[in-house]
Write a protein that binds this DNA or RNA. Structure first.
Lengths: 124, 124
DNA sequence: GGGAATACTAACAGAAATGTACGTACTTCC
DNA sequence: GGAAGTACGTACATTTCTGTTAGTATTCCC
């Protein structure tokens, strides 16, 4: 990897630039579980285990890890009720909701177009 | 991982279902290089090396591999001119262009919202 | 009492993604 | 002549991702 002569916070964020932070954010949003969490959390608040069941096959480790990442990016809001059997609610923040709309749009498009995509697919 | 009692091609594709093929397609589109290739190819045709320079830091190996995947999914059209110094053009297919609009929308949103996102970020 | 549920974390392990280096066949430029 | 550009494939190495297992403190249910 060579050096790229552009500061981390240039005037115009550009996803196509290797060092632009927008790339990382985009990757968080589009990561395997990140995208699905946004979709699952759209319009509703879910607890950790509910979220886990909603996604079907996330390991607790990955779910916790991904949620922390999204929380750090300000996409997800975590509210822990300090009760004896742990109870934590997850919901989308304002920007999280905005992102979710876009990610969900992509997901829905894939679902709608799936037949066409699978149709002319050249399987190895 | 437990077994999920749903056929690969049920009546309604659902990204939240572990075995739905839509998940894989979504992952291809949102993969690290997949998404960037769609963005870079929007509205224009690029050659292999131009694409490589456009993304800035893809290795040739990854670029070739990702392009093949997108081609297999019918998103990218590959046209090879049989000339002495190799010349191959890459462009988006119809569905590829549709997908690119959505992915690009997400990318542009991230770029626009980047300041806000980085603002309230809790760095580890 | 034993077992399940809750929301995690830490340690370890294996799988997948990604990069590096090299080779190719031929042309153009210095 | 020697170096660079072109579009890759292949082998190998490393980094990143993801999963599995075990453990925690407490309550509820049988």
């Amino acid at each position: 990897m060579k050096d790229y002569p552009v500061p981390p916070l240039g005037p115009k964020p550009d996803v196509l630039h290797p060092l632009c932070p927008s790339r990382q954010v985009l990757q968080h949003l589009t990561s395997r579980w990140g995208a699905l969490i946004l979709v699952a959390l759209q319009g509703r608040t879910l607890r950790f285990s509910q979220l886990r069941r909603a996604l079907g096959d996330v390991s607790e480790r990955m779910l916790a890890q991904t949620l922390q990442g999204l929380e750090a990016d300000g996409m997800v809001l975590r509210v822990a009720h300090d009760v004896v059997p742990p109870h934590v609610d997850y919901s989308l923040t304002e920007i999280g909701a905005e992102a979710a709309v876009l990610v969900n749009g992509l997901a829905k498009w894939v679902e709608r177009r799936l037949p066409d995509i699978l149709g002319n697919r050249k399987d190895a």
